Amino acid sequence: MKDIFFCPEESNFYSNCLENFVLRDCKNSESVVEFGSGDGSPVINSLLRNKFDSVIQGFELNTSAWKVANSNIDEYNLTNKYVIHNSSLFNYSQTDAEYLIANPPYLPAPDNDICMPLLFGGVDGATVTNELLSLGYENVLVLLSSYSNPTSTLNLAKENDYCVDKFMVLPLQFGYYSSEPKVKKHIENLQKHKMAFYSGNYYFLAGVLFKKCQESVTDLSNELAQVMTSL
């Protein structure tokens, strides 16, 4: 369905990050909220492969995706572990969940008049990601694109007392959504201002776990910044 985000490689990567950085470390009492659940497949795949005894509360504005996600949740009998609301996380006032997870919209463009408007990440692609890092959650897992002003996100994270706890990086080719001429041209302009980093048809997508800084936490921010700006 064209009105539902579809990129198996990216979804599998998100699922892998979720398993390695969140689900395997979660204690039974810890809860998780998700911004932008899409069709729910990354979380569903992760839950089917891991023992997780708490509840993930998802939020998805796209009604079509929300309906598909709930159908998938029912099919796999996960209604007691994964609940998705057809609303925005930004309207959800509670921040007492231990983890916030998201594969947020990160497409840069001059405006949201693009192939799939819900993928619009602001003029530099980092707007939604940066908003998520301003909500105050103790742990935040997000996917970070090298063509979406990653430096601004890492700087904002530091300002909000986050350290990079863990990360993994996937090289990806520009896909259906990022290859839309309007979007691709805008990314080229961002590159000229050192706000987008890519090489040829490849960019880096990083799965990053941000944690509120503590003295015992090793901050990998500089290492991640070097990787994301190396293209």
Results as ranks from 00 to 15, higher is better:
P108F: 06
L156W: 02
L89T: 04
L118M: 10
N86I: 08
N222I: 08
E10H: 12
I114T: 00
T63I: 09
F90C: 11
F197N: 06
I73D: 05
V227S: 01
L209D: 00
N112A: 11
L107E: 01
C17Q: 03
E9M: 09
V33R: 07
E75T: 11
W66I: 08
S46E: 06
Q226V: 09
N201P: 00
C17S: 08
V123D: 03
V22A: 03
N80D: 15
F167W: 00
C7K: 12
D39G: 04
C163L: 01
L220F: 01
L220E: 03
L119I: 05
K67W: 03
L132I: 04
W66E: 04
P110G: 03
K81H: 11
Q214C: 13
P181C: 11
I56M: 09
S31Q: 13
C163I: 00
E180Y: 07
L132E: 03
N16T: 14
M195E: 12
E75C: 08
P105F: 05
L18T: 02
E159L: 15
D165L: 13
V68A: 10
S31L: 15
N45T: 13
A225T: 01
L47Y: 03
L47V: 05
L154C: 06
K184F: 12
N189W: 06
K185L: 14
T79M: 12
I4L: 10
N91D: 15
Y137F: 15
E188D: 15
E19N: 11
A206I: 02
S93C: 08
G175H: 14
N160D: 10
L78I: 02
T95A: 09
G40C: 02
D74P: 01
L172P: 06
R24E: 14
N130R: 13
Y14V: 10
T129Y: 01
S15M: 10
G58F: 07
F174W: 08
A109Y: 05
S29D: 15
V123M: 09
V217I: 15
S41N: 11
S221A: 10
Q94R: 13
N20F: 02
A97M: 07
A225C: 11
E75M: 14
V140C: 12
K185N: 15
V22M: 06
N70C: 06
E75Q: 12
D165E: 15
N201F: 06
